[in-house]
């Protein structure tokens, strides 16, 4: 196990290096620059470029970036002046992560029992209703969900605040908007993987032992059927934790999500690199945790 984890950590470093290199050069392939939108003359732009080292050849810049990164310095933002990338991530990520964490929790608490219920009541009206709703919910883009929620709960019924994250009630709408798609997806995953193991002999054994159906489903079936859901949890957690551009924008939430998009459109090179590395690192870590969870859930999987 320890050997497996250390191999995975080494491969994670290699993966990160490839991600950094690819992002770095691709980023400069995109025409434009960070200071073009500043409405200043060419001379000033040249000065700014020199200040940030953007006048040097690309390979020199790449070398410098790697050198600084190894020292833990991800550079400063070109757009949010006076802040280092690390400072911005440390300030914004907890906001997105808190909201994302709540969304993941909500999604799991709702979707796993519903998926099991749908499988247990397969081909009955209960199953059909759950499936129709989850298919519908899965295909709704988050901006539609957010705007609909805002309109109904925020403006029409006026029961929930619409902006920011000041009170616990503020979390309700963005968390629903974030959680809806994963919830619906997990319901479908859970249902199909529960159906896959329906005819298994060990469930027959469990019933023949006199266990009540609830134990058969939630103890004996669930642990066997949950692997596909865990697989999906890796990338899903990463995406949800690091924040959604659309949802943060609509609910005016000061999270990390908006930096993924803004940094690219503003050619804020260090910010692009920072968010990308951060996202990749979390994704790699999440996948590693998922792989370790496999062996916890299924003792036949050994590393």
């Amino acid at each position: 196990m320890l050997k497996y984890v250390s191999i995975r950590v080494i491969s994670a470093v290699v993966t990160l290096f490839i991600v950094i290199t690819a992002t770095f050069f691709l980023m400069f392939l995109v025409p434009g620059g960070p200071f073009l939108s500043e409405r200043v003359n060419q001379q000033t732009i040249d000065l700014m470029n020199r200040k940030y080292g953007l006048d040097k050849p690309l390979y020199v810049q790449y070398g410098n970036y790697l050198k600084n990164m190894l020292k833990g310095d991800l550079g400063v933002s070109y757009k949010r002046r006076g802040y280092t990338i690390t400072e911005i991530i440390l300030e914004k990520f907890p906001v997105s992560a808190r909201m994302g964490g709540l969304a993941i929790l909500t999604a799991l608490i709702i979707s796993v029992p519903l998926g099991i219920l749908a499988a247990y009541k397969r081909n009955t009206p209960v199953d059909r209703v759950i499936m129709i709703i989850s298919t519908f919910g899965m295909s709704l883009p988050s901006f539609i969900i957010s705007v609909t929620l805002l309109y109904i709960l925020g403006m029409w019924l006026k029961v929930l605040p619409t902006i920011g994250l000041q009170t616990p009630q503020n979390y309700i709408m963005p968390v629903i908007a974030l959680a809806l798609n994963p919830t619906c997806y997990i319901i479908r995953l859970m249902r199909s993987s529960m159906l896959d193991i329906q005819g298994q002999d060990y469930l027959k054994t469990a019933r023949a032992k006199g266990l009540p159906e609830i134990l058969v489903l939630f103890k004996h079936a669930l642990k066997n059927a949950v692997i596909p859901v865990i697989t999906y949890l890796g990338p899903m957690t990463t995406a949800v934790l690091t924040g959604s551009f659309v949802i943060e924008k609509i609910f005016s939430i000061p999270g990390l999500g908006k930096y993924f998009i803004d940094s690219i459109s503003g050619r804020d090179y260090p910010m692009i690199m920072g968010t990308t590395i951060f996202f990749a690192a979390i994704l790699i870590a999440a996948n590693l945790i998922v792989d370790i969870l496999y062996s916890v859930m299924d003792p036949r999987i050994q590393y």
């Binding site: 298994q200 002999d201 060990y202 027959k204 054994t205 469990a206 019933r207 023949a208 032992k209 006199g210 266990l211 009540p212 103890k219 004996h220 642990k223 066997n224 859930m297 299924d298 003792p299 036949r300």
Partner: peptide, 24 residues
């Protein structure tokens, strides 16, 4: 029935490879 199953009537199956739960 749950009280009868496993206590008064118990059952063993054809394939022992699959009739025990692999994850417990």
């Amino acid at each position: 029935m749950q009280k009868i199953r496993g206590k008064d009537i118990s059952m063993i199956f054809q394939d022992p490879m699959t009739s025990l739960n692999p994850v417990y």
